[in-house]
Design a protein around this nucleic acid. Structure first.
Length: 303
DNA sequence: GTTGAGCGTT
């Protein structure tokens, strides 16, 4: 362990500042407090558990979580209830951070199709049945519009992803028939990109290098690829080893080198390539065609 | 008034 710089920020979504460690690899709380007055400690988001973890603090000395500080961004802790001049703003940021935390910690659920329902099964029957697995937030029984007769299938949505996994892992005896819960085919399109390991990084600036993007996104998880189109087109693709990491970032605005970039799915539903060139009215329409033939096509086969 | 692999009127 040698002297290095660790990245510290006031909030997960704020631009980090590099502060120096000591020769033995520890970081003095006083060094942190010199840049963040009132600081009483550090925390960071574990890439494994996705939870915030506290940094060990012994007599004013902060110790690296593992063998080193890794490339994580550390967030400053302040004493609870401490009055700061910009208290209101900080409270808002805390709320935003909480929302982010919740979003990252929880895997999104999706509607499940329920096949094989008895004709007589009602939505209430469905809800009563699936409530024994976990909280149900939506049930539907599909019916003929004219007769009102059940079509023998429906949909269910659970609050918790764990419940969804459980429900999909087994057959269900409902009103005397065996039924199956599956991910609907209609979700195969929109859902596939949701599980992608690749994210689209919008609003990139020209001074962002692939290496810098890699360094930045490392804090969320292992980065397996960074792609920046040339010539410059203000976006990039970042691929993670873990699809859940990629998914957790979608929809967020992150600050890189002082610029807010927007993270979204690498393969939007409206994957019309020509839309990408609609911002360049001066260019020939064939540019899109050239793009399609070029090496810079959107990868579509990555899972 | 039927049926039994599939894929969601609003």
């Amino acid at each position: 362990m040698t002297e290095c710089y660790i990245r510290v920020a006031e909030d997960e979504n704020e631009e980090p500042m590099e502060i120096p460690s000591e020769e033995d690899g520890t970081v003095l709380l006083s060094t942190v407090a010199a840049q963040f007055p009132g600081a009483c400690g550090l925390r960071y988001r574990s890439p494994v558990s996705q939870c915030m973890r506290g940094v060990r603090l012994v007599e004013g000395v902060l110790h690296a979580p593992e063998s080193d500080w890794s490339n994580l961004v550390y967030v400053v802790n302040y004493p609870k209830g401490k009055i700061r001049s910009d208290n209101k703003r900080k409270m808002d940021e805390m709320d935003a951070a909480s929302a982010v935390k919740i979003k990252r910690g929880v895997q999104k659920t999706s509607d499940l199709i329920v096949l094989g329902l008895p004709w007589k099964t009602s939505e209430q029957d469905l809800k009563d049945y699936f409530n024994t697995f976990g909280e149900v937030i939506m049930v539907q029984v599909k019916r003929d519009a004219k007769t009102g007769n059940s079509k023998g299938f429906g949909f269910v949505r659970f609050t918790d992803y764990e419940t969804q996994v459980k429900a999909m892992s087994q057959r269900h005896m409902i009103d005397g028939r065996w039924c199956d819960c599956k991910l609907p085919n209609s979700k195969a399109g929109p859902d596939e990109p949701m599980r992608s390991r690749k994210v689209f990084v919008g609003r990139c600036t020209e001074d962002m290098t692939a290496d810098e993007l890699r360094q930045f996104f490392m804090q969320y998880g292992e980065v397996t690829d960074v792609f920046i189109p040339k010539p410059f087109r203000a976006f990039a693709f970042v691929t993670f080893a873990d699809d859940q990491v990629a998914q957790s970032l979608c929809g967020e605005d992150l600050i890189i080198k002082g610029t807010s970039v927007h993270i979204s799915n690498a393969e939007p539903k409206h994957n019309n390539i020509h839309h990408l060139f609609s911002n360049f009215p001066g260019r020939s329409p064939s540019l899109a065609a050239m793009f399609e033939r070029s090496q810079y096509q959107f990868p579509s086969s990555h899972v």
